[in-house]
Design a protein around this nucleic acid. Structure first.
Lengths: 151, 151
DNA sequence: CGTTGAAAGTGGTATATGCCACTAAATCAA
DNA sequence: TTGATTTAGTGGCATATACCACTTTCAACG
């Protein structure tokens, strides 16, 4: 197959997803920059906020994120005083997470910027289309790709 | 607003995109693991392959990726002998990139695994739906989110 | 009770990405 | 031609993520 007719990356679902994620990351991060939080951090603070002092594992599961990755990602937020952790009294293996007062304030601040970015995105893409996109992405996050056992 | 009715992360386009990307990354990486390449690396090799000894900047633009990020990402591939670079003779600022022989062989190997992952994804999600998804993501990567100048 | 195995996190290592400051090279002006 | 500007990359630093090997706790069982 001559190079000219080779399919581009557009054929790969994962490559497309990554590329769009980079694009949106640059945009959301840019809008949220004044808060000093990356969009990822704002999302994580929000996830903690809406949880009930969630356990690390619960957060990781909700975000479809590796537990250790979550631990690493949490560190700057703890260092900066936005988040604190404490052992679950009933099961000391479990570490629970909550926002500090500063964290709540910072999240409020970041959410205002988030709304700007979100609004702008929907203005450009279209509200309906954005909603459908999120629905598809939500589905994908919940999928089970296990190959059927070769029995 | 009581916590019970707070919108989850599902409202955020970027958060959904990231979460789905993590999910797919785990899946594609897992399938492609036997090749020793991450799915991101396979995608990058492919992008180089279909280009005509592309310049770094051209690759970065095609992937909507920061130029310095591309430089960093390229390093392990150069180290492992899959990719090599050379200065453009007509403009010594420009660094061009190409696959080595080993790189072409490795890419072939990885592409076979990629097809498995891709096929499996489309079996689970549906070919049509996957195609629409990619189209939307492709659109997003090309958008211009600049706020209209406040003149 | 102990032993044993599962569950929850931690730390190390590696890749993925982005921003910023800086250098080198080419272009544009005066 | 020379000085200012723009273009293309590099390197340093920071965050985002993943996997793996460990450690600590629990829970289950004999």
């Amino acid at each position: 197959m001559p190079k000219d007719t080779l399919p581009g990356l557009t054929a790969c679902n994962y490559a497309m997803l990554r590329r769009a994620t980079r694009k949106l990351g640059q945009f959301y991060d840019d809008v949220q920059a004044p808060s000093g939080l990356k969009a990822t951090q704002q999302g994580l603070l929000y996830q903690i906020h809406i949880g009930n002092e969630p356990a690390m594992g619960a957060i990781a599961a909700a975000l479809v994120m590796d537990l250790s990755a979550l631990g690493h990602t949490l560190k700057p937020l703890i260092r900066d005083g936005y988040v604190e952790t404490f052992a679950d009294p009933d099961d000391r293996r479990i570490k629970r997470v909550r926002l500090t007062r500063q964290g709540r304030i910072k999240l409020d601040e970041a959410m205002k910027l988030w709304q700007l970015a979100q609004q702008r995105f929907e203005d450009v893409v279209g509200k309906e289309k954005a909603e459908r996109l999120r629905a598809v992405l939500d589905d994908i996050s919940a999928l089970d790709f296990d190959l059927p056992p070769a029995t």
